[in-house]
């Protein structure tokens, strides 16, 4: 190879690299929803087969489990939050979730995230977002949301009939008389209340793939 050819190769290589990196500027890195797109085929089945939607009874038990680091994330509006929310929950609107990805990704192995909405639609969107942006933590969705929670744990039974009649549209349809936030007795149900209920336990502490690297 004459020297001229090598120089041409260098020039070509530099041009290709520059164009490729310019392409990166144009294409950009994946947005959270695009990221979900890449993961969907692997994770969507979990939603469809209802592997990650947990019964209110299971959540009630988790709330009293000292060995689990429970992160209760409420993704509802402030108004619904003020009317009623679970004891120990944090209110984080869905759009603010990606910004918290470092915290969620750094959860210990016994960390469990449960997403809570009035029904399931919003919580499911939040679940997808967290799985896509926070290295797939142990995250679950409260099946039936707050509406079902209150129907099962709030004193009196009139709520159930109300819910049976109305459409599922992620609004707080359970009749809450006063804004009590988490001071409502159903915010942390008594153990005897929960013991009678049976449920399929779905929460599994997955051993997540650990990022290892660095020079020893």
């Amino acid at each position: 190879m004459t020297p001229v050819s090598i120089k041409h190769l260098h020039g070509l290589g530099a041009t290709v690299l520059l164009l490729a990196s310019a392409g990166l500027v144009w294409h950009g890195q994946p947005t959270p929803s695009e990221k979900w797109g890449f993961l969907a085929h692997e994770l969507e089945p979990r939603l469809i087969e209802r592997q990650v939607q947990i019964d209110p009874a299971e959540l009630a038990e988790l709330m009293r489990n000292n060995f689990i680091d429970l992160q209760l994330i409420d993704v509802r509006d402030e108004r619904d939050w003020n009317l009623f929310h679970l004891w120990g929950a944090q209110r984080i609107p869905t759009q603010d979730l990606p910004a918290q990805h470092k915290r969620f990704a750094a959860l210990p192995d016994n960390g469990v995230i449960v997403l809570v909405g009035n029904d399931e639609a919003r919580a499911t969107e939040a679940w997808k977002l967290i799985m896509a942006t926070a290295s797939q933590p142990n995250a679950y969705i409260l099946a039936g949301g707050i509406n079902r929670w209150l129907a099962e744990f709030a004193p009196g039974h009139h709520g159930r009939s109300v819910l049976a009649r109305e459409q599922v549209n992620d609004t707080l349809r359970y009749p809450v008389k006063m804004a009590m936030g988490s001071r409502h007795p159903a915010a942390l149900p008594d153990t005897h209340h929960v013991k009678d209920l049976s449920f399929t336990s779905k929460v599994k502490l997955q051993k997540r793939m650990v990022m290892k690297g660095g020079c020893g």
């Binding site: 260098h10 793939m209 290892k212 690297g213 020079c215």
Partner: peptide
């Protein structure tokens, strides 16, 4: 430049497979 490009490809493949890159001093250390 050719050696560098090859090394760059190796580095990339290592990241793709393992999630981390190369290292030396850590090995000697261990």
């Amino acid at each position: 430049y050719i050696a560098g490009a090859l090394l760059g490809v190796l580095l990339f493949v290592t990241f793709l497979l393992t999630g981390h890159g190369l290292g030396s001093s850590g090995g000697v250390n261990r």
